[in-house]
Design a protein around this nucleic acid. Structure first.
Lengths: 192, 192
DNA sequence: TTACAAAACTAATGACATTAGTTATTATAC
DNA sequence: GTATAATAACTAATGTCATTAGTTTTGTAA
């Protein structure tokens, strides 16, 4: 019949990423993916374990890529400048690969050890950026949570069209991060 | 056959909220909902338009309730104290009604006018809390975006089990909000 | 050239949402 | 109190999925 095309796990994942970015993660089905690849749905099972497995792969790839984007963004920068750049890179990633970003945030199974590992990679990257601030380990971890909440919250709301006013979004993000960083300067752990 | 039970749209919605809170929004299906209500799936169509409509109703109800929770929390409070209380109430809502909260954040159709209206209600509530700060309209809108990003990001990550370190989560949230508020004090609009 | 592994296929199943058409029950009007 | 209309349930049927089992084909390596 149709001559065999050299499909492998990676090309299937790439096609899934394209579909997700174009139509949203909700509309990523094995049926749609198979059509895009010009094969029948069951043939996908030669490359993936099933839909949940595919979603997990998307989450993992998304986490790896968003971390890469942040690493790239902070080259030659330190302290506030680095954190600001990392935050902007994070949100830009979500804008450029919305489906992949959804895959990160759409409640995947975070109990999965593989996902925990890549998640931990992001955390340790942020901790290294925070090192020059000389925070205690506990303080630094609270800041990591804060930073992640800020950038994820912003990216997530923006992707949902949650920001409806005709107000510059980049400006909102910059202010949010700068305000947080300024507050951090005033902290020594915490007062109050 | 079975004697008719006085089901109406509201009781169906309530049952859907329970299911979503217990099992997560992903597992809320019409089949599961019908089983819970001891009717057959098609009978649900006497009360709802379909699954997308039901999801929209959940989103709307969630937004209304989270706003109520914040309003309740800020009674007798102002400025930083009020914003802190509102933020904590927001996150607590997500903890107590996780399925309903997912419905808010699981990318519903924000183009829908009804959802826009309740969303605008949340924004105008926050603007009223910000009034005493004497910000310009533009500055205040940026702050609203910042606040929403922070609390949504935190709630969303926490619900995903995104915070894995054995670090007190309430403390993380308090610090995050307080750091942001402290940064706000140092702002006059923005400086550099 | 033959044999084996891999990648495609067809066929079948079961869960689901949705629509159409039917029956039964409640409430209202007389 | 009985007839009627509206409503809420039902059964049956369709189409879309994901998934599994079993089969055929193709590329590669012996």
């Amino acid at each position: 019949m149709a001559t065999r095309q050299g499909l492998d796990a990676e090309s299937v994942l790439q096609a899934a990423i394209e579909l997700a970015d174009q139509q949203g993660i909700e509309l990523l089905s094995l049926a749609a993916l198979a059509t895009k690849l010009k094969i029948k749905t069951p043939s996908l099972y030669n490359h993936i374990k099933g839909l949940p497995d595919l979603r997990k792969q998307l989450s993992k790839r998304g986490l790896l890529l968003v971390k890469d984007a942040m690493i790239e963004a902070v080259i030659g920068k330190a302290e506030d400048e680095a954190l600001l750049a990392a935050g902007v890179a994070y949100v830009d990633f979500a804008r450029k690969q919305p489906g992949l970003y959804e895959a990160i945030s759409a409640l995947p199974d975070y109990e999965d050890p593989e996902l925990q590992e890549v998640g931990a990679g992001v955390v340790s990257f942020l901790l290294r950026i925070l090192a020059p601030y000389g925070l205690s380990e506990e303080d630094a971890l609270h800041v990591v949570r804060g930073f992640r909440s800020i950038v994820h919250g912003f990216a997530s709301l923006e992707l949902q069209n949650g920001f409806r006013m005709g107000l510059d979004r980049d400006e909102s993000l910059r202010r949010l991060l700068q305000t947080y960083l300024r507050g951090l300067r005033g902290d020594a752990g915490r007062e109050k």
